[in-house]
Computed example of a mutant assay.
Amino acid sequence: MEDKLKESELRWKLALEASGDGIWDWNPQTNEVFYADKSREMLGYDPGEMPNDIELWRELIHPDDKKYAYDSIQAYLEGKTDNYLTEIRLRCKDGSYKWILGRGTIIEWSPDGMPLRVVGTQADIQSIKDREGEINLSHQKFSNAFKHSGIGKALVSIEGKWIEVNKAICDMLGFSEEELKKIKFQDLTHPDDLDKDLEFDIENMVL
């Protein structure tokens, strides 16, 4: 039975290493921990530079993420959450911080129900976070240009509901933002122009 367990564990570790993620194996009761070399490499360390010391690894957590990281693992160990999943920043060898996705699961319990072994992975998600930052910046630039434009601008749903309006169009129409959002585009359009305006709007939505 013990040989089968070791064989199964070896297959599990090989599969995780092949995925490109770093793996870790932690005993919450003794704080004994093992980190695979991949975990070190993604932070710029050589295999022998960072020992398997959980306190040293905890020191790598960004100050703003420490409480979140601690609360997340404690909640999982206490059974308050179904899984352990975190996104935190870890300090690299060069002093920069990198976003890491951590996952873990309890695989061994003591007879009295205490978690004895937690295994998991850590993945480099910095490129994803960088992309999110670029999207947020682009959205912020669009939002600023939209709001502060001297030309009246609005986002209108296909049903004619005002979704977003800027100050210029409010001043032009003589309505506040709150008032415009309570009515529809059709309510302000002359009946003779309504079909033409709706056709124009739909064509531009498709484009």
Rank of each mutant, 00 (worst) to 15 (best):
K98V: 06
P63G: 02
D64L: 00
N83G: 13
G95Q: 08
W162Y: 13
A75L: 11
T86R: 05
E9M: 08
Q74F: 06
A69Y: 07
A145N: 07
N144R: 11
Q122A: 00
P191Q: 10
L180M: 05
E203D: 12
L43E: 02
I169H: 03
K38I: 15
I106N: 05
R91A: 04
F146G: 02
S149R: 12
L5K: 14
N83E: 15
S157V: 08
S149L: 12
Q122C: 06
R40I: 06
S176L: 11
I183A: 05
K161H: 09
N144G: 00
A75E: 13
G152Y: 10
L56T: 07
M1F: 10
E17N: 14
T105A: 13
F185W: 13
R117P: 04
I107C: 12
K153E: 12
G120L: 02
S96Q: 03
N31G: 07
L101R: 09
A123H: 14
I128D: 02
D171L: 06
A36I: 00
V156K: 03
L16G: 01
S19F: 07
M1C: 12
I54C: 08
K38A: 15
G22W: 07
P191G: 03
Q140A: 03
D187P: 05
L180D: 01
A15N: 10
Y45Q: 02
G174N: 06
D71A: 12
I128L: 09
D197A: 15
K161N: 13
L188H: 01
K6M: 09
I54V: 11
T121F: 07
D187Q: 04
E32V: 04
W162S: 02
D197N: 14
M50R: 14
L198H: 01
K141A: 01
M172N: 10
D37Y: 01
K66R: 10
L155E: 11
L5S: 11
S143K: 12
Y76A: 00
F142P: 02
E178S: 15
N136W: 04
E159M: 08
S39Q: 10
K153H: 14
L56W: 02
P63T: 07
A36Y: 11
D82S: 15
P115K: 00
G104R: 04
R117F: 03
F175R: 01
E178D: 15
M205Y: 13
K93E: 10
W57L: 05
I151E: 10
G150P: 01
Q126W: 06
G120E: 01
D64T: 08
Y84R: 05
W12C: 06
D37L: 03
P63I: 11
G113E: 03
K181R: 15
T81S: 14
D124L: 04
W109N: 10
D25Y: 08
P63F: 09
K66W: 02
K80Y: 03
G152Q: 12
E41H: 09
H148A: 08
E108L: 09
